[in-house]
């Protein structure tokens, strides 16, 4: 079982990971890659909570039109059953790898996720995407010169044969997570129960933050029933809903060397599979 100091040390280790650890050769032989570094490489890169960082100036920036259009396109793709938003989160926030995750603008990653899902689910081909991009580049060669940036589809396609998920049918008029209500059975934990967050091996995706894994907290509320992100992010057929809990942690126990007060707390939501009782 990890301690708060162990967890802080692991976050320090992750923070130094760029594309690879400089102390190791590229593509190291397996005997040079220890468990902690294996874990750092496999860490879903969106999980930045608690990684060391220094203050920066917080500022707004002009919201560019393509950013707004990218947000809208992602939401419309989910609305029309092309993906679950949980698929978008994995594809755009994790599958991109650390270099693109930290190197790209926020909505740049959303946009890459659109291209990725349309290709992986065979809605478009990479060649036609590249040809269309080249055509758009030609259309706007020399800049906008006062023109408006406008999409000009050649025609409106017939969408009746497009493969869509069933979520948009089932959730209609109910909402999500309400569509899963009453399907997870009896909750294993009750409000007030002390729980420990399990330290399951993590490959590819989870929404249980690294900073909480191995830590002990208390059930603050039963949240809802839903498939766990590990299943939902692949829209896995037959994924069963389970209970989610709001778990409260005391900051001074969660963080090695916490310098706030003894009463400060943090709450986060964790699915049942990640929790075990504390004797």
């Amino acid at each position: 079982m990890s301690t708060a100091a162990d967890r802080a040390a692991q976050l320090d280790l992750v923070a130094r990971l760029r594309s690879s650890y400089p102390e190791l050769p590229d593509a190291p032989p397996p005997d040079l890659l220890d468990h902690d570094r294996f874990t750092a490489y496999m860490k879903p890169v969106h999980d930045v909570g608690g990684e060391p960082d220094v203050p920066m100036k917080y500022e707004n920036k002009e919201y560019e039109y393509w950013e707004h259009m990218t947000y809208v396109m992602c939401e419309v793709l989910a609305w029309r059953g092309i993906w679950l938003s949980e698929e978008r989160r994995r594809i755009g926030n994790v599958d991109v790898g650390r270099a693109v995750y930290l190197g790209f603008p926020y909505y740049g990653r959303w946009l890459l996720a659109v291209a990725r899902v349309l290709l992986e689910k065979h809605h478009i081909g990479l060649t036609e995407l590249a040809e269309r991009m080249a055509e758009v580049q030609r259309r706007f060669a020399g800049g906008l010169s006062g023109r408006t940036l406008t999409a000009k589809p050649a025609f409106e396609g017939d969408g009746t044969q497009v493969k869509r998920n069933s979520h948009v049918v089932h959730a209609l008029g109910k909402g999500d997570p309400q569509v899963y209500a009453g399907r997870a059975g009896e909750p294993k934990f009750a409000v007030g129960d002390p729980v420990r967050v399990r330290e399951l091996p993590v490959l590819f995706y989870t929404r249980t933050p690294e900073y909480a894994r191995g830590a002990t907290g208390r059930i603050a509320a039963l949240a809802y029933e839903s498939p766990a992100p590990e299943d939902e992010t692949w829209d896995r057929p037959g994924a069963e809903p389970e209970w989610f809990y709001v778990v409260s942690f005391t900051m001074a126990e969660l963080w090695h060397g916490y310098n706030g007060t003894a009463t400060d707390t943090l709450r986060t939501e964790i699915p049942e599979r990640w929790l075990e009782p504390v004797d």
């Binding site: 259009m69 793709l77 809605h123 995407l129 580049q137 706007f140 906008l144 999409a151 396609g157």
Partner: peptide
């Protein structure tokens, strides 16, 4: 509007056009 059309703008327009032409939305 921005003066120079960026890679992100090109990709967004291309994807949106393809989605509409294929009836995805």
């Amino acid at each position: 509007m921005v003066d120079e059309v960026t890679d992100f703008e090109v990709l967004e327009i291309a994807l949106r056009e393809l989605c509409i032409e294929k009836g995805i939305f």
